[in-house]
Design a binder for these strands. Structure first.
Lengths: 221, 221
DNA sequence: TCCCGCTGGAAACGAGTGTTTAAAACATTA
DNA sequence: TAATGTTTTAAACACTCGTTTCCAGCGGGA
């Protein structure tokens, strides 16, 4: 192997370029030249650009899933048989998300990638993430169901995605927002600062009163 | 002019293609062939692809801003001098957003475009939207400040972006989420359905208790 | 009638894309 | 040391991209 492994050098370079410019806007030539690696190296080691994108995600999501499963195991043991409170579940997820990139690169990159996974076309990516990491998420939502027995299933489904949107949107667009915030309010916000602000908002959102029942169908949508 | 104006035929086709595949992933050739228009027509009528993208947004945002300004005018007259309640402000914004695409195409396209504007690189777009339509948003946030006097400025700033994230994220990824929801809960959700569910969540998020003060700085971020 | 400013159309340009090839360099084992 | 398998390299391939060029058709004003 070279000074540092070619594979990891490609991954390190690709993840920040993807995060700050998107997938389609980042060419293999940009990646390989910045990583000081031959152009063909990507296709040799990963097979294709698609596979490289998936590999970038795997490097974050693999450690995340094992840590999260582990954390949920501990929680279930701790509350043996009982219900794990919603706040604890959310807190655990947040802590796991925060821990994973700590040992790797920046949390910012991780969140930007998650944001891209949702917004960019890249159908293969959504399918890959769903197939590969869907099970952890279902386990989590099952626990959330136990913690919020009064919420109708569909309502809980939507609210989870509401807060997911809040978190991903905020953290993935953090740089731009932080610039505005610092200019207007002269206060520096760290990621952990943001999480502190997010917590009460997310809890309040999940515990919001139920919406009124839908109007008797007046017009088709 | 042809059967329908070449310019509007380009815009009509471009907006749905952009919405469902992103900007970089949609080529001018795809647009022009689907619109049954010559390839050179885009560069002739709009000058460049960038300008076409901006024109697509302008066709939504121009009517939106005049309507929204008008609605805020009425509100200020109605509450002459007094404070406009937060719920009324949010409701007004939601109604305006809903009204605009009604006379044009789908709300879905509009929200997907907004989502793309945030997530895709396209620096020129963010700048264009900020320069062209930033004033309406500042007027709105000023009114929100009056409605929530107990919220610190920075906290209100972040919470507004939190709920913005919720709305854009949910509505722009609606199709995928709707598929899951329909499969799992056998209920069809319309956009207006979603807004009904969003309302209490957004209000609760804005009115959430303040976060605890930040920890005495332990480690740098 | 000639000329002019627009709009539409086919073809080409030059740059940039992901991917493949075949040879060279290296590393590892026998 | 020789043979083997693995990794790196430079060059080419086959496209696709946004943009430009040049010309044909069209209208109405002089």
């Amino acid at each position: 192997m070279a000074q540092t492994d070619t594979v990891t050098r490609i991954l390190d370079t690709a993840e920040v370029l993807f995060a700050e410019r998107g997938f389609a806007e980042t060419s293999l030539r940009t990646i390989t030249s910045k990583a000081r690696v031959n152009l063909a190296a990507v296709n040799y080691h990963f097979g294709s650009k698609k596979s490289l994108i998936q590999a970038v995600f795997a490097r974050y999501l693999d450690p995340f899933t094992v840590r999260f499963h582990h954390a949920l195991d501990e929680l279930e043991a701790q509350y043996a048989g009982g219900v794990i409170p919603l706040e604890v579940l959310l807190e655990t997820m947040a802590r796991t998300v925060l821990d994973v990139p700590a040992e790797r690169h920046s949390l910012k990159v991780f969140m930007k990638l998650l944001g891209l996974a949702y917004s960019q076309a890249q159908g293969h990516l959504r399918r890959y993430i769903q197939d590969e990491y869907g099970s952890v998420f279902s386990r989590f939502t099952d626990l959330v169901r136990l913690a919020t027995p009064d919420l109708p299933d569909s309502e809980r489904f939507w609210r989870l995605h509401f807060v997911l949107g809040t978190v991903i949107f905020t953290l993935s667009g953090l740089d731009a927002l932080r610039d505005i915030a610092e200019k207007d309010y002269q206060e520096h916000v760290s990621v952990r600062d943001l999480i502190r602000r997010l917590r009460p908002v997310v809890v309040a959102a999940m515990n919001a009163p139920l919406p009124p029942p839908p109007m008797p169908k007046a017009e088709a949508s």
